[in-house]
Computed example of a mutant assay.
Amino acid sequence: MNNKQNQTTDLTGKRALVTGGTKGIGKAIADELARAGAQVIVSARNHPGDGNTEHYFIAADLTKPEQVTKMGQEIMEQFQGIDILINNVGGLTTPPGGFSTLTDEHWESELQLNLLSAIRLDKILLPQMIEQQSGVIIHISSVSGRQPLWNLNMAYAVSKAALNSYSKALATELATKGIRVLTVSPGATKTPPMEKFIQDYATSTGINIEEAFKQLLAQTGGIPMGRMAEPEEVASLVHFLVSPSAAYLTGTNYAIDGGSLPVV
């Protein structure tokens, strides 16, 4: 069989939704997909208000089921569905310190933001993908899901590990329906939330930012490449994975971490 026609990263005519798409990794992904020809929709809790997005914008808090439903309805009305879904919404919202510092509310918050938001949105948009027998879903996870740090990100890491497992199960279920599901797990990436995390750690430990960054890297075993990723580097990987060139890839978790994970 000749598959040469599938060897392209052009996305002309594809409809793509990027959640959390107004800043950081999400914005880089949205911009990358648009440059490849996709019609891009982005969502966030609030509009950036600074002209920071050129894409169709939907305001939605994806931890609220009713707002996920409303967003799904708007997408169906305006675009008749999507071809590419990037579940990028997520973040570390809980305090450091291990199990004794984490309340039920902390655990619930991390699971809502990092796991259930993606599950809800998938459920809303998948019927249309199944009907057209094509589509790609990318779950943006984290290397923390495979390398949790008990004193820094326990609940976040657990929620991302759950997202990894869900993504794999969904990929298996949908493989015969023309839909691919993949996970991308960035390591330390140069984004505003990462910079704030380092700043907060420095403040809480009474050290400067440079030393805080060194200590955080030491806990993870360091980054062999010696630097954080740029958001655009994560976006390039996502672009390839959603493209026809990756047509035989599904169910895999791709770490993009400069070699930091100490496992094969």
Rank of each mutant, 00 (worst) to 15 (best):
V158F: 11
P193F: 06
S109I: 01
V184K: 07
E131H: 12
N153D: 15
F99Q: 06
L125T: 04
K168H: 13
G90V: 01
Q132W: 01
S141K: 07
K190N: 15
T101Y: 14
R180Q: 08
P193I: 04
N88C: 11
N88L: 10
L174Q: 05
S100M: 06
M129N: 07
E77V: 08
V143C: 11
T189G: 12
N87I: 08
L85A: 08
I138N: 01
N114E: 07
I119V: 15
N153S: 10
Y166I: 09
N114M: 10
W150G: 11
F99A: 14
E110S: 13
M194E: 12
A161N: 07
N88E: 12
M71V: 03
S134V: 02
I119S: 04
H106N: 15
H106D: 15
T191W: 05
D122N: 15
M129C: 07
T176M: 13
L102P: 06
L111K: 01
E110D: 13
A171K: 02
T189C: 11
A161I: 11
S117H: 03
E77N: 14
T94L: 08
S159T: 03
G135F: 02
W107M: 06
A162L: 03
Q147L: 15
A155E: 00
T69A: 13
A171T: 08
L163V: 07
F99V: 14
K70L: 08
L115C: 03
N87D: 02
S144D: 13
A188M: 14
E110T: 03
A155G: 06
D122K: 11
I130Y: 03
Q132Y: 00
A161G: 15
V143M: 05
L85P: 00
Q73N: 09
T176I: 08
T176K: 14
T176A: 14
L182C: 09
I179Y: 01
M194R: 14
P186D: 10
S134L: 06
H106L: 05
I82V: 13
P186S: 07
G91E: 03
G91M: 01
E108L: 14
K177N: 10
I179R: 00
A169R: 11
M76W: 04
L170I: 09
G135K: 05
L102E: 11
L92E: 06
E173A: 08
E105L: 03
I179T: 03
A157T: 04
D83M: 05
A169Y: 12
P192V: 07
K190Q: 13
L113P: 00
N151S: 14
E131P: 00
T69W: 05
G135E: 08
I86S: 04
S134G: 12
K123G: 00
T69H: 13
L149K: 10
W150Q: 06
Q133Y: 05
Q80K: 13
S185V: 09
A118D: 04
L102Q: 07
T69V: 15
